[in-house]
Amino acid sequence: MTATTQSMKTTAPVQPSPLPLRRNILDLDDYSVEEIASVFQTTDAMKEVLGREIRKVPTLRGKSIITVFYEASTRTRVSFEQAGKVLSADVINVSSSGSSAEKGESLYNTALTLQAMNADIIVMRHPHSGAPYFLARHLKASVINAGDGTHAHPTQALLDMYTMRGHFGRLQGLKVTIVGDILYSRVGRSNLWGLTKMGAEVTLCAPPTLLPPDFLGSRRALEEHPFAAVKVETKVERALEDANVVMALRLQLERQKAGHLPSLREYSRLYCITPKRLALARPDVLVMHPGPMNEGIEIDPEVAHGAQSVIEEQVTNGVAARMALLYGVVTPVRSGR
């Protein structure tokens, strides 16, 4: 009797708010404010599950999730795997090394193979922008974009925003400064979609060579563009003034070789988030980083591990947010979106 009660308690289904039906999660451009708010509420419920003694609910029992990673990843892949397993789904991980992709199998044929295995959800990371759209075009299964090239990383952006909301209780009116490799950052781009929708004031900061050319001065011609209100700043000190949130992006060594930068050392001198620079932001500023970090280049170790840093909390929230998202795509009725 006691055992039954206990079991009932730990496997009690979560009671999240009803999510709008959605088939694919490709980017945040097709999310409404309401849907993002609803994901946050469901994430709250999932976070409660993660705090239980026995972290398992039957929500996705009998569903299969295949994660396909054509690029290296630790936190995102493990985060999805853990999210799926807590929800009792069967999670199968495929990485490009050791798979038939190594034998030159095309993405199209890989997609058809996964389809034939009756996967309910495909979680894919791919080095080419748009690869999950290609998959979604050809598959009946739900496709979740776990990062595509330099395009989008919607689940990361949702967990980032969820983390900000957790601290400030709102996103509307928050000053969010994103510093680093904006040109190539899928995390930055998806955050831009989400944050602008939710009413945050976003400032992008990077050397001009790491900003999209159409975001720069004279070429910024499209007034009706959804990002028209986004501020662009090349001087980090100005970008940090009064910021509620500072998000540093990973800077890759290849940028130096490709001529975007004279050296990582100079980048660090000019753009690294140091304690001194951080003091320009608001006292309760949150420091975020999607990882993996290059400490000492885009972020000072003292800041990365300091009192304002929520970088580890981002990882924890990532599991809950992905549980909410997985739950959201596995619904009996498909919206066709």
Partner: peptide, 15 residues
């Protein structure tokens, strides 16, 4: 083409 669509799609643009 290099421009807002390339930025939108995260694709490398040709100036």
């Amino acid at each position: 083409n290099e421009g807002w669509v390339a930025t939108r799609l995260g694709l490398r643009g040709v100036p």
